[in-house]
Computed example of a mutant assay.
Amino acid sequence: MDRRKDGPGLTLMSHEGTPYRFDPGALCLELLPTGGPGVFARFEVLHTPADLVTWAGHSRLADGLDLTVDEDQLARARALRNALFLLTADRAHGRPLRREHLDLINAAAAEPPLVSRLGADGSRSWAPGATGTQLLSTVARDAIDLFSGPYANRIRECGAHDCRLLFVDTSRPGRRRWCAMEHCGNRAKVRAHRARRAPGEGA
């Protein structure tokens, strides 16, 4: 996972080993590709506290975050991620939100968040000495803003049958279907093109 300097979003790897850009549209949703519950545990990348620090540096958070994470905070990060994963999937498919997931997110949000600072040049920076608990609070508060905000009805799962990436469609038209056009979107276009050509080729 990597992040470009020219905008939000993550660089993910396809099953074929090809990198592609994925912007889930919100900080909290950027945590989901790091793994997940059940069968998604095989994608786990948060194995050590340093992995969570690395993720934070690749996220929407500004550069220069001085972050320290311990093992307990790492375990809570995975638990928050798993709850958020299931909550987001439920929202995307119109299912009721489960109390146990809401309770975990609300508990994380109740902790003090990261402290931002405004520089003389108008830039934002972070107060030094940030902790994993503050990071998780910031992520949880972002999730609350998303699920209670104007884009809550645009939380979706990628339209590809073999992709489970979740995102919020913040585009003006509101017609986003794919995790990324350069990945699942292009694959769908290729399949549709082949399907249109197939009858003629058979004849």
Rank of each mutant, 00 (worst) to 15 (best):
57 G>D: 01
75 A>R: 13
77 A>M: 06
18 T>A: 14
120 A>G: 08
14 S>M: 01
84 L>V: 05
105 I>M: 11
14 S>Y: 04
108 A>L: 00
72 D>P: 09
20 Y>Q: 02
143 A>D: 09
104 L>N: 07
29 L>F: 14
126 W>K: 06
80 L>I: 07
74 L>M: 07
133 T>E: 11
32 L>D: 02
109 A>S: 11
48 T>I: 06
98 R>H: 12
104 L>G: 12
36 G>K: 00
36 G>T: 04
22 F>H: 09
56 A>V: 05
114 L>N: 04
20 Y>T: 01
128 P>C: 08
108 A>P: 01
55 W>H: 04
68 T>H: 13
40 F>Q: 14
69 V>I: 10
57 G>W: 00
111 E>W: 12
58 H>P: 01
50 A>D: 15
81 R>G: 05
66 D>L: 11
8 P>A: 11
129 G>K: 05
65 L>P: 01
70 D>S: 07
128 P>G: 07
20 Y>K: 02
63 D>L: 11
24 P>V: 03
74 L>T: 00
119 G>S: 10
65 L>C: 06
47 H>L: 13
84 L>A: 03
16 E>L: 12
127 A>W: 08
22 F>Q: 01
130 A>D: 10
39 V>W: 13
79 A>V: 08
65 L>S: 02
132 G>T: 06
124 R>T: 15
105 I>C: 02
141 R>F: 09
138 T>P: 09
92 A>G: 09
40 F>A: 15
38 G>E: 15
32 L>S: 03
61 L>E: 06
113 P>Q: 10
123 S>I: 02
122 G>C: 07
40 F>L: 15
79 A>C: 02
97 L>F: 07
130 A>N: 06
33 P>F: 00
31 L>C: 06
19 P>H: 05
137 S>E: 11
143 A>M: 10
24 P>A: 01
85 F>Y: 15
32 L>C: 08
107 A>G: 05
69 V>M: 05
99 R>A: 15
6 D>H: 10
84 L>D: 01
87 L>H: 10
34 T>P: 00
125 S>P: 02
112 P>A: 09
138 T>G: 12
118 L>H: 12
137 S>Y: 05
6 D>I: 08
138 T>R: 10
77 A>G: 12
131 T>Y: 01
41 A>W: 05
85 F>A: 02
24 P>W: 00
38 G>R: 13
9 G>Q: 07
105 I>T: 02
48 T>L: 08
61 L>R: 04
136 L>R: 13
47 H>M: 12
44 E>D: 15
49 P>Y: 03
140 A>T: 06
78 R>S: 10
142 D>Q: 08
15 H>Y: 09
125 S>H: 11
143 A>P: 12
64 G>Y: 04
136 L>H: 11
99 R>K: 14
48 T>A: 13
92 A>S: 13
81 R>S: 05
68 T>F: 06
112 P>C: 10
138 T>F: 10
